[in-house]
């Protein structure tokens, strides 16, 4: 074989083959990747830039991620500055004009939903490490997940008109399936509507709102700040007064503090996965929410 064709065939072999898929979709998180797979089916090849067990604030802007973005037909991000620390330089390096913020190949999931915890007054960093644009942890509300999936389908349809009908049908199917699941999940949580809970941080605002639970306190006095013991004593009093039965902590955090408050107030610790892919079994959106609801109901049960 002549050396040049050999080199060419080697390069061709290295180019990832997306057999049959017509769109390369890159998402910033595993949760968004799960939705993209549900909506896109085999017309899309989905790559996530981070894993579900990774803190999405602190992903390394490894230049090889820029190479993935160069080849992206669509970039799906969460928005609300969640990825501010690492996504912008990668998008700049990608040479992909379409995925710049606001352009036609960029879909920011937060744009499809109503955002909670948007500060209404001036904010600064003395309040802890905060999200001035609003709370970006919205995928644990199934209604918002469906809204994101439908908006994503519309975006995919505009980029790939030949598959438009398929995307819409799959999104409708996703909405129907999750709708049915939602009835099941809400039924499992129904006995606990209106109950008070305590969370480690405000990551569960959307979940609590959806499930009809009231968050009456946080284990951390400010986001990312270790609680002094007096704060825990306060939380124990709050938990007793408000009859809190569950203290929510994401699986990758230490549960010692939560366990102390739980023990003294008679509550239980609910260890919930933070995103799709955060545990071995939470492989898709449905499985992830199943785990969340199971952990919640398990902790809230009398």
């Amino acid at each position: 074989m002549h050396p040049i064709p050999r080199l060419a065939s080697l390069l061709l072999a290295l180019v990832p083959a997306a057999a049959g898929a017509s769109l390369q979709v890159v998402t910033t998180t595993d949760g968004l990747a799960a939705l993209a797979r549900d909506v896109g089916g085999d017309r899309v090849a989905v790559t996530a830039l981070s894993h579900g067990n990774q803190d999405p604030h602190f992903v390394d802007p490894n230049p090889n991620l820029a190479v993935k973005l160069r080849d992206a037909d669509l970039l799906v991000d969460v928005g609300l500055d969640l990825e501010i620390g690492w996504l912008p330089p990668l998008v700049n390096q990608s040479r992909n004009a379409g995925i710049q913020p606001g352009n036609e190949r960029r879909f920011t999931a937060a744009s499809a939903i109503r955002v909670l915890d948007v500060p209404t007054g001036p904010v600064d960093r003395s309040l802890g490490d905060l999200h001035p644009a609003g709370n970006p942890h919205f995928l644990d509300d199934p209604r918002r997940a469906v809204e994101v999936a439908q908006a994503m389908a519309a975006k995919l349809a505009s980029l790939d008109p030949a598959g438009a009908a398929g995307y819409r049908a799959r999104a409708a199917d996703f909405a129907r399936r999750i709708g049915a699941d939602e009835q099941r999940w809400l039924a499992a949580l129904k006995p606990f509507r209106g109950q008070a809970i305590i969370a480690k941080h405000p990551t569960v605002t959307y979940l609590a709102r959806w499930a009809g639970l009231r968050i009456v306190g946080y284990l951390e006095p400010k986001p990312g700040v270790e609680p002094p013991p007096s704060h825990l004593a306060e939380m124990v009093e709050v938990a007793r007064a408000q009859k809190v039965r569950a203290i929510l902590v994401e699986t990758y955090y230490d549960t010692r503090t939560a366990a102390l408050v739980a023990k003294l107030s008679g509550a239980r610790v609910a260890s919930i996965p933070g995103d799709v892919g955060a545990s071995r079994t939470a492989t898709g959106y449905q499985a992830y929410m199943d785990e969340v609801v199971k952990a919640l109901a398990g902790a809230l049960a009398p």
Binding site: D117, P119, T120, G121, P132, H201, T203, T205, Y218, G224
Partner: peptide
């Protein structure tokens, strides 16, 4: 880990939501 947890803001958010 970056949220605003001022009680007033939360209350405002709750009212708006």
């Amino acid at each position: 880990m970056r949220y605003v947890v001022l009680a007033g803001l939360l209350a405002a958010g709750a009212a708006a939501a």
